[in-house]
């Protein structure tokens, strides 16, 4: 089984900071894994995600995604890799409020030629419709401007956008913290099903330890990170 994410001797500190925020000797996540990464607020979770998504960079050889060393790619190549292979779900406000739910979903493919290619059997529009329907949005809701949808619906649209075109990796940054428990479990279930169907790796980040039993593998950030974490 090939690896999806590989961290080796990762050192990262923000400019001006005395000590590194992140210092992770090693972490490997295989393809198709469903991993929960738990960490307290301010423990560097979002920074780590930014590094994996190729928004921030660090030294050579430290972060590899799908076998590619991110430090060896330029800005444009990293943006392309993210567009093509990484679906990103935010905690909240995932959608562009002025586009319809479906337009938000198809937007992801606008920047990602590889994703479009994988969808080539059907039109992007059709594929988005099917995916949204599977996630439980009626065709009427799909045409509504996204700011009219409930938070739970918005998160499902965000998931659909992340999943469309079968990227290799889904990064979910506290996607359930704005949802109540029933919606939360339902949402995670949907996410699992979709990831299984596409053999997509899921990196699920949360501060909420109660979610850990739902995942086959749970990582505690404080256990792998030896960096100077602000103890709050």
């Amino acid at each position: 089984m090939s690896t999806c994410i590989e961290l080796k001797q990762l050192q990262f500190k923000w400019p001006g900071a005395q000590l590194p925020l992140l210092s992770i000797p090693e972490l490997t996540i295989a393809r198709g894994e469903r991993v929960l990464l738990r960490g307290a607020s301010g423990s560097g979770k979002s920074t780590l995600l930014g590094l994996i998504a190729g928004i921030h960079t660090t030294g050579a050889g430290q972060v590899k995604v799908l076998g590619q060393d991110l430090a060896g790619l330029n800005q444009h190549r990293r943006d392309q890799l993210r567009a093509n292979e990484i679906g990103y779900i935010f905690q909240q406000f995932n959608l562009l409020p002025y586009l319809s739910a479906r337009a938000n979903v198809t937007l992801a493919c606008q920047f990602a030629p590889a994703r479009r290619k994988r969808l080539s059997q059907q039109s992007i529009e059709q594929e988005a419709k099917q995916l949204l329907t599977r996630l439980g949005l009626t065709p009427e809701q799909q045409q509504q401007p996204s700011h009219q949808l409930s938070v739970g619906q918005q998160q499902r649209v965000a998931a659909a956008r992340a999943l469309l075109g079968s990227p290799a990796l889904i990064i979910a940054d506290e996607p359930t913290s704005a949802l109540d428990q029933a919606h939360r479990d339902n949402f995670i279930q949907l996410l699992f099903e979709a990831c299984d169907a596409q053999n997509t790796t899921l990196l699920f980040v949360t501060h909420d330890a109660t979610l850990a039993p739902l995942f086959p593998r749970a990582i505690e950030l404080s256990e792998i990170n030896q960096g100077a974490v602000a103890d709050v």
């Binding site: 993210r82 567009a83 995932n94």
Partner: peptide, 16 residues
């Protein structure tokens, strides 16, 4: 800024 971050997350480069 939110809008920009969303666009960045789906792969829009800073040039975009």
């Amino acid at each position: 800024r939110r809008e920009m971050a969303v666009l960045r997350s789906i792969g829009a480069g800073p040039i975009t």
